[in-house]
């Protein structure tokens, strides 16, 4: 009985995670095209107070997805949305992978839980 309850809950959790991922993908793919392009707080302070020029070019400025664009995609909104989808997918994969390793290690050493 306990295992049936656990299975049902983990099934519902899977559904919740999938729904949440869909929301994140929509935000990154579509809503991102309407985000403000103004400098953020730190960039604004750096410009206003005069230390913006000390910033160096990013070491990965030549990355195919640098600055949330995608190499070869000219439409800015499409490129941003596409890079958002890539980023959300990658972040989920890395995040879920790291946490799966963390919790698996605990199962291997049950007394430390």
């Amino acid at each position: 009985m306990a295992t049936a309850t656990t299975a049902r809950r983990s099934g519902r959790t899977r559904a919740f995670v999938l729904a949440g991922l869909l929301v994140a993908l929509l935000l990154a793919a579509v809503v991102s095209g309407f985000a403000s392009g103004s400098p953020d707080g730190l960039e604004r302070v750096a410009e206003d107070k005069g230390f913006a020029a000390t910033a160096e070019d990013h070491a990965l400025a030549g990355s195919p997805v640098a600055d949330y664009a995608v190499e070869g995609v000219d439409d800015e909104r499409v490129a941003t949305g596409l890079s958002g989808v890539i980023g959300v997918t990658l972040t989920f994969a890395v995040g879920a992978g790291v946490f799966a390793l963390v919790t698996r290690r605990r199962r291997a050493v049950p007394d430390e839980g």
């Binding site: 995670v17 929301v23 994140a24 995040g95």
Partner: peptide, 25 residues
């Protein structure tokens, strides 16, 4: 973290990535 919740933590990271793209004035 409950060990069944690794995908939830992955979702939280993915959601934060998405919302960090949404600069508001």
């Amino acid at each position: 973290l409950d060990d069944r919740l690794a995908p939830m933590a992955g979702l939280v990271a993915a959601f934060v990535f998405a919302v960090q793209m949404l600069n508001f004035p």
